[in-house]
Simulated scan of single mutants.
Amino acid sequence: MSPHKEQKSDLSHEEAIDRIWKLSKEIDVCMFITWDGEYTRARPLSARVHRDENAIYFLVNADGAKNDQLERFPKVTMAWSDNSGYKYVTVSGHAKVSNDRSKIEQLWEKTDAAWWDSAQDPEIRLIAVVPDEAELWDSPGKMVAAAKMLMAAVTGAKPEVGENAKVDL
């Protein structure tokens, strides 16, 4: 757990946590960021967000470089972006790669058939992330944000374009 519970928002701690889980589920595809010992590496992955299990899951190939990176450096960051709505979420946590066939079958979706023949494909692996901290940037929308930024430019004031909250999960 992180020692800070910084919050720059009118949202309560629980409201911020609710919003983070909701947006990460709604936006779906995130940039999944690992460390290889020299560089951070990012790739887009479809997230299976399960707040009731305090976990975020990903189906991946067995031979992916990220799997080796996670064995050595299990701390990851996931970044979701809804640019049209000016809504952004980052979540950090610890990841583990497994061959949990039952969970893979449970998480299987029709769209996964674009990558694998079926949930029984032996090349599928499961990444499970247990989140420990997150940050939220949540704007009321593009038009409102643009209007507030224009007003700030005219008046010289800093624009207030939405909620920003950093929380421990």
Rank of each mutant, 00 (worst) to 15 (best):
K103H: 02
V91K: 04
K103S: 03
D112Y: 14
V89E: 11
A95N: 05
D100K: 03
I127R: 01
K96Y: 01
H94G: 03
T90D: 05
R101G: 06
W80T: 05
W116Q: 02
S98W: 01
S118R: 12
A134N: 07
E109W: 03
E133K: 13
A128K: 13
H94M: 09
N83T: 12
V130K: 14
G93Y: 08
I124Q: 01
K110F: 12
P122D: 15
K87A: 09
E109P: 05
A95H: 06
G85Y: 01
G85Q: 06
P122L: 15
P131D: 08
Y86S: 02
F73G: 07
Q120A: 15
L126M: 14
A119M: 10
W115Q: 09
D117M: 10
W116G: 06
S84Q: 09
L136W: 00
L107V: 08
Q106C: 06
S92D: 14
T90Y: 04
L136Y: 06
L126R: 10
D112C: 15
L136G: 01
E105T: 13
W116H: 06
G93K: 08
K142T: 01
L126H: 09
L107F: 06
S81C: 12
S98G: 03
G141Q: 02
P122Y: 10
S92K: 07
S81I: 03
E71H: 11
A128F: 00
V129H: 04
G93M: 10
N83F: 07
I124M: 07
E135Q: 15
V97G: 06
D112S: 10
M78S: 01
P74H: 13
S92M: 09
A79Y: 13
W108K: 04
E123G: 11
P74A: 13
D132W: 05
W115G: 00
P131Q: 12
V130M: 04
S81M: 08
Y86E: 09
W108V: 11
V91G: 05
M78N: 08
Q120Y: 05
P74R: 13
